[in-house]
Structure formats: structure tokens, C-alpha cells
Simulated assay, not measured.
Amino acid sequence: MRRKKIFGPFGAVVTASVLALGLAACGSDSGSGSSESGGSTGSSAPSSSAAPSPAGATGTGSAELPTGTPGKGKPAVIMGDKDFAEQFLLGELYAQALRARGYTINLKENIGSSEIIDKALTSGQIQMYPEYTGVIFSNKALADKGDHPKSATVTYQGAKQFEESRGYTLLNPTPFQDADGVAVTKSFAQKNGLKTIDDLSKLKSFTYAGPKENRNRYQGVLGLKQAYKLNNFTFSALPTGNQYSALDRGNVNSIAIFTTDAALASGKYTVLTDTKGIFGYQQVAPVVKQSVLKQQGPEFEQTLNAVSKLLTTDVIIALNKEVQINQKKPADIARIFLKANKLL
């Protein structure tokens, strides 16, 4: 069936499926487990070969959308986002929703990796940004302790405790989780009998490509070597977003992926099952400076929680597809989705 196209602001063409998902998110939480507190009891993975996401943590902050413009006259807030498409979407979703409530938000886009944006946060260049709970827990809070969480709740609580210890906090997490993973082409998996990451040990040698930070991350090279005892691969550093084309061309054998990548819905790839749990639990939650929350008032947090509550796995994959595959602008897709859910 042909999908109706909607002509949005500035002549942008956006498929009606985004609006449909937006309205569905507003009217029902079926399959997402979302609650009024903005958490979840579970989320489903994309309808590709990705493994289902484990149950998610729940937040305790109010997700009731405030009325009026409570942010009018409040000091400006500087928000950042990281260096890939899903982050650009998240930045726009949170920033636009806050602006609609009268808050002045200066969005600094494409700052860089988790390590770089954290330095921007702690140096005062930004005051908040959306981060993945497992990244905070494993790469920051317990980077040198070798401790890896066994549940989404432990991950969220540990990340929140760490941020609060240095003057920040985490707001409610999203229902969706965007974990890291390892993918190969479906044909390569079939040829070599690959279903799990363990199966890579069958290969005489292989190449694994991902962002340069993966060289020193447990959710990358370190985890593959320490947990899976894989020493038969070489690592190739590639910018996020370039790994699928490298895999398609045969330049590498396996790649680092995010489980909400729109490309996975094509059916061309096999995501190898993470039997050792090295990729952990990766819900998104805004990291915000505590003094900023106090200054901006409770409606600031409520608005952010209201956005997070809507972001189920199906929704974020659909939004990612519009940006990553259909080449739409993140700001336009965010605007349409927020309007459909009455946040603008």
C-alpha cells in the first residue's frame, strides 16, 4: 500500500508513518511497558535479526506535561548532543519540547563521542545532554573496576548515583534501549555458521570495525577479548555511520552497531547474540546539572520526562529511519512527531 506523504515546514516531505507512530505513542503504550513515570517493564527489538531488548529500568520523576510557558523569563540552558544521527534526533526532541514551554535552549550539536561530550559537560561548555545509561555505568562510573551490571535497574541506579556524586543527575529513562552489538552480513553468517559472538572463534581470522573509541571500551575490543577470549581479529576504526557501507563492500567482516539502527530493518544483516552480556543495558536519560534543574523549576524536568516516555523501540526505529535512510532533517522529524503527540 502506498504511504501518503505529508509536506511539512520548509517543503520537507515526511511519510505519514511518522505521524502514525506519534499518535500511537500518545494513545497507547502497548508493547513498550511505558508508565506515567516514564519507565518501562520491557521493550521489543526491531523486526530484524536483532535480539529482543531486556527489561528496562523505570524512573521516579513526574512525566505529566506542564501547561503554559513556565520557562518564560528563565535563564538560557545549553544542551549538547553526540556525534551520530540518533543523538541529533534526541537533541531536537528534547530542545523543541522545552522551547514550546517557554524555555530558552541553545542546542550545541555533534559535539563528539561520550568521552568528548562528558568533558564539555564537566568544563561548563554545556549543562545537559542525552546519554545512554550503560555508557555512564561502564565507561565512567566503573571504568577501572571491571564491574558490569546485571540488569537495567542496576545500570540506571549506578549511573544516576555516579552523576549525582559530581553535581549532575539523570532524569527518567526512555522505554527503548539502544545497545551496542556486533553484526555481519546475512550471507557471511550463513556461510560460516555464525549465530552468536562466540561463533566468531570458528573463523581463522576476521576484521571488526567500529568507532575509534571501541578500541579501549569493554563494549568493544576489550569485551571481545576478555569475555569472549577472541584474539583472532583486527580492529578497524571507522566513523559512526560508515560501518555498514564498509561491510557491504566486503572491506570488513563484522561491525559495531546500535540495536536501533534503521539499516537493520533491511534484513541484510545478522546481529550476533551477545551470550556474555558485554553490551549491557542502554536506555537513554538526560544528564542535567542539578543547579540547572533547581533554577528552571519542576516543569523543566516534567517536560523532558514527557518526551522520554514516548520513545519506545518501534518509535525510535521509525524516527531513525526517516533520518538515516530517507535523509530527512532531524529537526523536521522531531517537530512532526512532537506535534502529533501534542508536545508542540
Score class of each variant (00 low, 15 high):
205 S>Y: 03
332 D>L: 07
126 I>E: 04
282 Q>P: 06
104 T>C: 03
343 L>A: 11
3 R>N: 14
301 E>M: 08
233 F>S: 12
276 K>R: 05
201 S>I: 00
117 I>E: 04
27 G>H: 12
48 S>Q: 05
258 F>S: 15
296 Q>V: 05
203 L>S: 04
31 G>C: 06
139 N>R: 09
117 I>K: 06
131 E>S: 11
137 F>S: 08
8 G>M: 05
323 V>H: 05
287 V>Y: 04
108 K>D: 08
191 K>E: 15
108 K>S: 11
293 L>N: 06
192 N>R: 04
42 G>K: 10
315 V>G: 03
41 T>P: 08
122 T>P: 08
57 A>T: 04
166 R>A: 09
141 A>F: 09
340 A>M: 02
211 P>N: 02
25 A>S: 15
20 A>S: 13
20 A>F: 07
73 G>V: 00
74 K>R: 14
48 S>C: 14
143 A>T: 01
131 E>K: 03
262 A>V: 07
95 A>W: 02
90 L>D: 13
178 D>G: 14
86 E>M: 09
184 V>Q: 01
324 Q>G: 05
343 L>T: 08
82 K>S: 15
115 E>R: 13
307 V>F: 02
272 L>I: 08
203 L>E: 02
315 V>F: 02
108 K>L: 07
149 P>C: 04
131 E>L: 00
11 G>V: 01
226 Q>M: 06
307 V>Y: 01
51 A>E: 14
19 L>G: 15
286 P>K: 06
46 P>G: 15
34 S>G: 14
205 S>G: 10
25 A>Y: 02
335 R>D: 15
16 A>W: 06
22 G>L: 02
103 Y>F: 12
47 S>L: 07
78 I>C: 10
301 E>A: 15
285 A>K: 02
27 G>P: 07
152 A>T: 06
219 Q>C: 11
212 K>Y: 10
249 R>M: 10
150 K>G: 14
37 S>V: 06
98 L>D: 03
48 S>T: 09
160 K>Y: 02
215 R>D: 14
185 T>E: 08
153 T>H: 13
68 G>A: 09
18 V>L: 11
148 H>T: 07
99 R>Y: 09
189 A>I: 07
87 Q>A: 04
122 T>L: 13
59 G>E: 01
72 K>F: 00
113 S>T: 13
200 L>P: 14
283 Q>S: 11
120 A>G: 10
209 A>W: 01
41 T>Y: 10
186 K>V: 00
202 K>N: 14
287 V>R: 06
307 V>Q: 05
156 Y>L: 11
92 E>P: 06
4 K>D: 15
252 V>E: 06
24 A>P: 03
63 A>P: 13
246 A>Q: 11
33 G>C: 02
52 P>R: 00
96 Q>N: 09
140 K>D: 14
197 I>F: 10
294 K>E: 12
331 A>S: 15
33 G>Y: 01
135 V>F: 12
126 I>Y: 01
66 P>S: 07
284 V>M: 06
193 G>L: 09
171 L>G: 15
17 S>M: 12
36 E>T: 00
161 Q>S: 15
6 I>P: 11
259 T>Q: 10
17 S>Y: 12
216 N>E: 09
169 T>V: 05
114 S>M: 03
51 A>V: 09
225 K>M: 10
281 Y>E: 05
172 N>L: 01
101 R>T: 00
18 V>Q: 04
50 A>H: 03
220 G>C: 11
118 D>M: 11
105 I>L: 09
3 R>H: 14
